[in-house]
């Protein structure tokens, strides 16, 4: 049975006319590590905001473990753990107290809360910092406390919004490890990211989102093999006028699936590169080949294929 069900979800903010979320349908299975990949402003955070009861949808329906998040938000929050993009640790409380009182909010007794907070400090290697205040911790450690706090009440689903934003590379790897261990415990994890490496390294399945629409949903591997025409060849040319004949000529090569015009030349989507490069160079001779680069299939190429844009653009 799916643990998160999103159906026909849309959100139009009052001030803006365009839909931030524009008809998203998806389901997340129990125990899955699910990713929402897309550029900034794609609608990922709004989607997570609706799932976690903080944003009201314009239409559509979200249920978490069978509880409707709009009709019964307080009940739904029992099943939800959230780590938002910004640091929301309670600055007036110590690390231990942040965990302890979070448990109290969820109805744990004094003894249960103490025990749970202690266990989490150990699990996340934070026991030496129990009496520190959040401001005394590095960004990476604060992030770890936020994750520990988010799962303290044993939610069915943990939502992580851009978990590696603002983390140094080392902390990011540590965070990935922490997230993978959560999955081993059976917690379903839904995360948003605009780092394709992160989506690739962590997620069982992911959905690619742009302009509030879900463009593709599958495992990272299947997305790469089916949607990326495998390999992307960027061809930079000195003379970019009248590219149509070249485009036609290259498009006729059986290995090349499709050709796009870019600002500085052509972008080719190919199946493999064996013997292909000399052929391309020969064909483009008259245009003056300035540079030629090859990208093995990545989620980046999948994204480019789907939207014609770079994730970073």
């Amino acid at each position: 049975m799916p643990i998160v069900e999103i159906a026909g979800l849309t959100k139009v903010y009052d001030q803006q006319k365009v839909a931030a979320v524009d008809g998203i349908d998806l389901t997340v299975e129990r125990g899955e590590l699910f990713g929402l990949l897309g550029p900034n402003g794609a609608g990922k955070t709004t989607t997570i905001g609706i799932c976690t009861t903080r944003i009201l949808p314009t239409s559509g329906r979200v249920t978490i473990a069978g509880v409707d998040v709009v009709a019964q938000p307080a009940q739904a929050r029992r099943n939800i753990g959230v780590v938002p993009q910004y640091n929301t640790l309670d600055r007036s409380l110590t690390i231990f107290e942040n965990l302890y009182f979070h448990c109290r909010y969820f109805g744990f007794s004094n003894a249960e809360s103490r025990e749970r907070a202690g266990a989490l400090l150990k699990q996340f290697l934070l026991h030496e910092r129990a009496k520190s205040y959040p401001s005394q911790l590095s960004g990476g450690l604060q992030q770890r406390v936020q994750i520990a706090r988010a799962i303290a009440h044993r939610p069915a689903v943990l939502f992580l919004d851009e978990p590696s934003a603002g983390l140094d590379p080392q902390s990011r790897i540590a965070m990935w490890d922490a997230v993978r261990r959560l999955r081993e415990e059976g917690i379903t994890v839904v995360l948003t990211t605009h780092y394709m490496e992160e989506a690739d390294a962590l997620c069982d399945r992911l959905v690619i989102i742009d302009h509030g629409k879900a463009l593709a949903l599958d495992t990272p591997d299947r997305l790469k093999t089916t949607l990326g025409a495998s390999t992307v060849v960027e061809l930079d040319l000195r003379h970019c006028e009248n590219l149509a004949p070249l485009s036609e000529k290259l498009g006729a090569i059986p290995q090349i699936a499709s050709v796009e015009t870019t600002a500085s030349g052509l972008r080719l989507f190919a199946h493999g590169t064996d013997g292909l490069l000399p052929e391309i160079v020969r064909a483009a001779q008259d245009y003056g080949v300035r540079d030629l680069s090859i990208d093995e299939p990545t989620l980046e190429t999948v994204f480019i294929r789907l939207t014609g844009r770079d994730l970073r653009e």
Partner: peptide, 15 residues
Amino acid sequence: ITREIDDRVMSPLPV
């Protein structure tokens, strides 16, 4: 500034 009320808003209580 701090948004630290968020954790309390996410408690299982009507807002």
